[in-house]
């Protein structure tokens, strides 16, 4: 195990989290390997989003540790922006973008955070001098077929497009770990397929991803490993083929669903 240690990007060990009487997470152990896409699936209320929230500092676990490339995220007073600066970017379940800014500015902002850190006071530097950042953002928008609307207000986008925009906002940061909370929820089939294509492209670039998803088509076309969460505990983990045939998983989650 220790030989593989250097290969592990995120290591969740013995994490518990309770909300009042509800045990949302119980003794979660998870290792996310470098360059792999790790899917977490499970029925509604299984604790998937809670798990992701503990990884970005939104929630603090009651016990256990979450180590990201040698840093324990549960120790000390790491703020959300500190965790982002360590190299974790996240796509939220409800799209979190900047509705008052243009699409281009939405993608440029995270690049500034990646480049400049948590704070930089530069009120006299014109934005138009940031040509390199702008070009990189435009390339990403082109990948998403959104380049034509680059100067439109992001607030007017459809829900599906907001999601794709948010993905671009994360990608421009070149995160060491990308957390995706249902990246295709609420998307039309056509957009879902395009998003899968994009995520496959990212996968080829070797970016490590944790993905929460309901859409089994998305999960099985992207995941290298799958963990199944039910009632706050991991009931199965393994290669997609193993999970497909796992009796416990069928019982707890897939049930009669077609896979």
């Amino acid at each position: 195990m220790s030989a593989q240690g250097s290969n592990i990007v995120l290591e969740i060990a013995g994490v518990n989290k309770a909300f009042g009487g509800l045990q949302a997470l119980s003794d979660i152990n998870l290792k996310i390997e470098q360059g792999k896409t790790h899917a977490i699936i499970g029925p509604n209320g299984a604790g998937k989003s809670t798990l992701l929230n503990t990884c970005i500092g939104l929630l603090r676990p009651d016990s256990g540790s979450i180590r990201f490339l040698g840093t324990d995220l549960t120790q000390g007073k790491l703020k959300p922006h500190d965790i982002n600066q360590l190299g974790i970017s996240r796509v939220f379940q409800t799209p979190a973008i900047f509705p008052d800014l243009s699409l281009l500015q939405n993608v440029m902002l995270p690049a500034f955070a990646h480049k400049e850190g948590t704070f930089r006071f530069n009120p006299f530097e014109p934005l138009r001098d940031e040509k390199a950042v702008e070009d990189e953002a435009m390339v990403l928008l082109e990948d998403l077929d959104m380049a034509d609307e680059a100067h439109h207000h992001a607030g007017n986008l459809s829900r599906g497009n907001k999601r794709r925009l948010e993905l671009a906002m994360c990608l421009i940061q070149h995160p060491k770990l990308l957390l995706l909370d249902e990246p295709t929820a609420g998307m039309a089939r056509h957009d879902t397929n395009r998003t899968i294509e994009l995520l496959k492209k990212i996968k080829a670039s070797g970016m490590t991803k944790v993905i929460i998803e309901h859409d089994m088509h998305v999960v099985f076309s992207l995941a290298d490993r799958i963990s199944v969460l039910a009632q706050g505990a991991i009931i199965a983990e393994g290669h997609p083929d193993e999970i497909k045939g796992h009796p416990k998983v069928r019982e707890a989650y897939l049930g009669s669903a077609e896979v």
Binding site: K79, P80, H81, F92, A96, P110, F119, M169
Partner: peptide, 9 residues
């Protein structure tokens, strides 16, 4: 909130 999760303080 997005600002914070984007890495800005």
């Amino acid at each position: 909130t997005r600002m914070e999760y984007t890495g800005f303080n």
